[in-house]
Write a protein that binds this DNA or RNA. Structure first.
Length: 174
DNA sequence: GGAACGATCTGC
DNA sequence: CAGATCGTTCCC
């Protein structure tokens, strides 16, 4: 997943982000939404790979995952961060909003799971979208770059299964 | 029916 | 470091 490109919008609204931070969640993992089996919320996780699973959290944020397992296996990869490859102005407008405040530094635009969804305009409408459908509101693709050099660490923001090495972060400078 | 809490972000 | 803010899940 690291190094892949996620795209939303079209024409002047086109935004492309290169993924540089992810976390893996499997069904046998107590920190995974799929751990207790299928529910209305996590249903997409149990569908075929290559679809987007979005969920609402902390009363205000949306997070985005790529479903990775075979149908019937609740697996997904949480997209935690990236860098803007295209559409910087659109991203900046979405992230800064209409509030009068100091500009957000480039490196702070997409360095978090909820920042990433806001930057790309991903929300409830994208839950279940086929990321391999070129006409979908969200697409995933590659520009041929190999998987970047990365480190593997424990995950962030969870209270169980904290010891599992399932966070993947592209090394700086790659 | 109700309560607790969360794969977070921001500003103080 | 606490507040924002509400859907989902689980327990009674």
């Amino acid at each position: 997943m690291l190094g892949l490109l996620l795209a939303t919008g079209d024409g002047p609204e086109l935004v492309v982000v290169r993924i540089n931070e992810t976390e893996a969640y499997t069904q046998d993992d107590a920190a995974s939404h799929s751990f207790r089996g299928p529910t209305p919320r996590n249903a997409v996780m149990f569908g075929p790979a290559g679809h987007m699973y979005t969920y609402f959290t902390y009363g205000m944020h949306w997070c985005a995952n790529v479903v990775t397992g075979r149908a019937g296996h609740g697996e997904a990869v949480l997209l935690r961060g990236g860098v803007v490859e295209h559409g910087l102005e659109v991203v900046r407008a979405r992230r800064e909003g209409s509030r009068a405040r100091r500009p957000i530094r480039d490196r702070d635009l997409v360095n978090g799971p909820a920042k990433l969804t806001q930057a790309l305009g991903i929300g409830p409408a994208e839950n279940g979208v086929d990321l391999c459908d070129p006409t979908a509101s969200v697409r995933i693709c590659t520009d041929g770059a190999p998987t970047p050099a990365h480190e593997v660490t424990t995950r962030i923001g969870i209270s169980v299964a904290t010891e599992l090495p399932r966070r993947f972060v592209t090394l700086r400078g790659r």
